[in-house]
């Protein structure tokens, strides 16, 4: 079973993404900030991470992505950034830190499912 880690500071968003991905055969993990995300990513090595950009704490989504993409043991993990609508700079910054793809909030659940199926092959 493929493992997906959902990183967002809002529990409602994490739950929404989890419920949306329930139609697929995935094991879902959750983290509420960048630090936890890195910790879980290192111990669980998920196949894919859905990473919110804006998170409180020392490590935001960009920084967490940069750290994971620069570590040999986690750099193979596919990372999709969740960016707020209208924040066009986020997409560029996301690809700069090594994100594989991005997704805009509010998101279309069908597109999210398709994108993740596409990325996981």
């Amino acid at each position: 079973m493929r493992k997906i880690l959902i990183v967002d500071d809002e529990p409602e968003v994490r739950r929404l993404v989890e419920v949306t991905l329930r139609s697929g055969d995935y094991e879902i993990l959750q983290a509420e900030d960048g630090e936890k995300a890195i910790e879980i990513a290192r111990s669980e090595i998920p196949d894919l991470i859905i990473m919110d950009v804006m998170m409180p704490g020392d490590i935001d989504g960009f920084e967490a992505t940069r750290i994971l993409k620069n570590s040999p043991e986690t750099k193979a993990i596919t990372i999709v950034m969740l960016t707020a609508r209208g924040q066009e700079d986020d997409k560029e910054k996301g690809s700069e830190v090594g994100a594989d793809d991005y997704f805009v909030k509010p998101f279309s659940p069908l597109e999210l499912i398709q994108k993740i199926e596409g990325l996981l092959g």
Partner: peptide, 11 residues
């Protein structure tokens, strides 16, 4: 939240 809900309704 409403905007997100709208996306779900559309889908």
């Amino acid at each position: 939240t409403y905007r997100q809900l709208e996306m779900y309704a559309d889908d």
